[in-house]
């Protein structure tokens, strides 16, 4: 066991996977000599050399496109997009090529690759360094989308993603990179994609979130406990596929649910969870699923924290579903 934060865990996990499988290569802007702008690839260049830790030009289309080519030819590339906001120039490669390759080739080819990207707000990055594009990827058949919230999960999920036979978008909540440490086992372990985890047991309502907003969601659950309200907290961890069964079972028992996501509200991924809950178990609901989300504006610089679903906004939504 070692006590590690999330970004240290990711660096160690990449190291372990590169040792385990020589087909694993890393590529991205400043991932080599610099060790990544967030140091998620620290020391890997010195250990594995420039053939396996590749500093790329500033072209996301090239990074993702080259990763598709490497994957088709037998490597296991882990591409880093420096900020999720930069993925847009590489979007076509991810959505039109990587996601469709297995299908378009009649399953002759697949693209076993991972695209890691530091995601989300709360670091005073302004619009171009704070966005949450997960909804776009969830709406793309052929991709898998993972968004962990803890160091422990980062390790298990990243290993599963690297070993998966198809492209995985691995989103990392950058404001949690160094937010806290926890015990991360030294040994090899994986966490299946598509499996949510219950972070708090509770009986009065369910709160569902993922990634960076898990911290605020757990704080809200603590605050509710002091008021005598028992909230179950589910961390989705995987967004495509997401754990529909776990969510429906929990919500059906409690009848009340609050959904938290920091992406802009309209057509947010969390709307999919809300819609599915209503479709499947409307008759068990005591109140409509309430969403707490980012706002329908570009991500602000000045109101960096206010944009994010904070404890107060979550508690207000909880009050609404309780009073409904």
């Amino acid at each position: 066991m070692a006590s590690l934060n999330m970004v240290q865990t990711i660096a160690r996990t990449l190291d372990e996977e590169m040792t385990r499988d020589e087909r694993v290569v890393i590529m991205g802007e400043d991932v080599g000599k610099r060790g990544g702008v967030f140091l998620a690839t620290e020391n890997l260049f010195d250990k594995y050399g420039p053939d396996r830790v590749i500093d790329s030009p500033l072209s996301e289309a090239a990074i993702i496109g080259a990763a598709v080519g490497m994957a088709v030819h037998g490597l296991r590339p882990v591409a880093e997009i420096q900020f999720a906001d930069y993925v847009y120039p590489g979007f076509d490669q991810l959505v039109s090529q990587a996601a469709k390759l297995r299908y378009r080739s009649g399953a002759q080819f697949s693209a076993p690759m991972v695209v890691r990207m530091p995601t989300g707000g709360g670091v005073k990055g302004g619009h171009h360094h704070s966005q949450n594009p997960e909804t776009h990827f969830v709406h793309t058949p052929g991709l898998k989308v993972v968004y962990p919230s803890t160091p422990y999960d980062s390790k298990g999920l990243l290993k599963t993603a690297i070993r998966d036979e198809d492209p995985v978008v691995f989103m990392e909540p950058k404001r949690l990179y160094r937010a806290f440490k926890e015990e991360v086992p030294e040994e090899d372990y994986t966490i299946p994609l598509g499996e949510a985890v219950i972070r708090r047991e509770g009986s009065d309502l369910v709160m569902i979130s993922y990634g960076g907003t898990m911290t605020e969601t757990l704080k809200a659950a603590d605050a509710l406990k002091e008021q005598g309200i028992s909230a179950e907290v589910i961390d989705l961890r995987s967004l495509l596929p997401w754990d529909e069964q776990r969510v429906l079972e929990s919500v059906a028992r409690k009848g009340r649910v609050v959904l938290i996501s920091e992406a802009p509200r309209t057509a947010n991924f969390i709307s999919e969870v809300a819609a599915t809950i209503s479709e499947e178990i409307l008759d068990t609901l005591e109140a409509p699923p309430m969403r707490v989300t980012g706002f329908d504006t570009p991500y602000p610089y000045a109101q960096d924290r206010e944009y994010l679903p904070g404890v107060n906004r979550i508690l207000k939504a909880v009050q609404q579903v309780i009073d409904y």
Binding site: V138, H139, S271, A274, P289, R291
Partner: peptide
């Protein structure tokens, strides 16, 4: 998954 239809559905239920 993640469709505009999901958004419309969520708004109606809310």
């Amino acid at each position: 998954s993640g469709s505009l239809a999901a958004e419309v559905s969520a708004r109606i239920t809310e």
